[in-house]
């Protein structure tokens, strides 16, 4: 009994530092932000307005567009990226594969490629008279040039391509590291039983990696709901506000326009609530027993 209590006390110590640091640097400012979300006014001239900011959200066309766009990104991009990342990491984990380090580094490069460089090159490649269109038209894949950046539909596609391009390698790292922790004897046993590669993937790899798949899908969901850099740098939210995201709107409200921090904070808390719902849903679907 006393031994158990001792272990229990040690357990609290393990989590103590992290809890204190996060409380100090995140929850304390978050509490202040929450108070701010019930205030309105420009810059330092703030006054309490109750739930006005939250009510205003429902009548704000920019907010509604931003949230719709963000959901489109989320629904298309997260599944594509996770499947692609898993697939690549399984290929790259093959014992007999040559040039492994080279392939891994190549696929990880987008993660470290500077946003500045990549937005310039993306805009250049995806320009209406750009390399991509020239290529696609020349090989008759498409009848005429696509307006990748200036058409509301295609601009969203471009953003989704850009996010996938940049973050697939990022998620791949987590899968790769997890794959190293999987007991090889399970694979050998399966192989002896004559299981097909596809079966091994769905029956062994995916269940074994479940905690990490859950981790990446939750963090990718959070990342996509907060997507900012790609949009700011590639389309600037345009054409019109066809690609604008919630985070970009928060940024504009706080810094581009005369700051209305109260309203910007209210918008942020809507993201928080959405993320909580999605996270809970994903935990539930995965059947993870964290609760």
């Amino acid at each position: 009994m006393s031994n158990r209590m001792k272990i229990n006390a040690t357990g609290w110590f393990f989590i103590a530092i992290a809890t204190v640091v996060i409380t100090l640097f995140y929850f304390y400012p978050m509490a202040q932000a929450l108070i701010l979300s019930f205030q309105s006014g420009l810059g330092a001239n703030l006054s309490f307005v109750g739930f006005d900011n939250y009510i205003r959200l429902f009548h704000d066309p920019t907010f509604i567009t931003a949230i719709t766009n963000t959901f489109i990104y989320l629904l298309v991009q997260v599944p594509v990226m996770i499947v692609l990342g898993l697939f690549l990491s399984v290929l790259l984990n093959d014992k007999k594969l040559k040039f492994k380090g080279l392939f891994r580094t190549a696929i990880f490069l987008p993660v470290i490629t500077s946003l500045v460089a990549y937005s310039v090159i993306f805009k250049y490649l995806f320009a209406t008279d750009g390399v991509l269109n020239q290529f696609l038209v020349k090989f008759s894949i498409i009848p005429e040039a696509i307006e990748w950046l200036t058409d509301p539909f295609w601009a969203k596609v471009t953003i989704i391509i850009a996010i996938t391009w940049r973050w697939t390698g990022y998620n791949m790292i987590f899968y790769l590291s997890a794959l190293q922790n999987v007991d090889q004897s399970i694979y050998e046993a399966a192989r002896i039983d004559g299981a097909s590669a596809f079966k091994v993937f769905t029956r062994i790899t995916i269940p074994m990696l479940k905690p990490i798949i859950l981790f990446t899908s939750i963090t990718s969901t959070i990342g996509t709901l907060q997507i900012f850099d790609e949009i700011m740098n590639i389309t600037g939210g345009g054409p019109g506000n066809a690609t604008t995201s919630i985070s970009q709107y928060i940024y504009n409200l706080s810094f581009k326009y005369t700051p209305d921090f109260g309203y910007a904070t209210a918008v942020s808390f809507v993201i928080v609530i959405l993320i909580i719902l999605f996270t809970a849903l994903q935990f539930r679907v995965a059947g993870d027993k964290n609760d």
């Binding site: 040690t10 357990g11 995140y26 978050m30 932000a33 701010l36 993201i271 928080v272 964290n290």
Partner: peptide, 30 residues
């Protein structure tokens, strides 16, 4: 959190997860 699992710790864990859900831009002023 994983090895010394308890109900209380799980609650704390879930609360900690909240901290990555808020856009950092609004935490900057506080």
């Amino acid at each position: 959190f994983e090895m010394f699992k308890s109900k209380k710790k799980d609650i704390i864990f879930n609360i900690l997860l909240l901290s990555m859900m808020i856009p950092f831009a609004v935490l900057m002023v506080p």
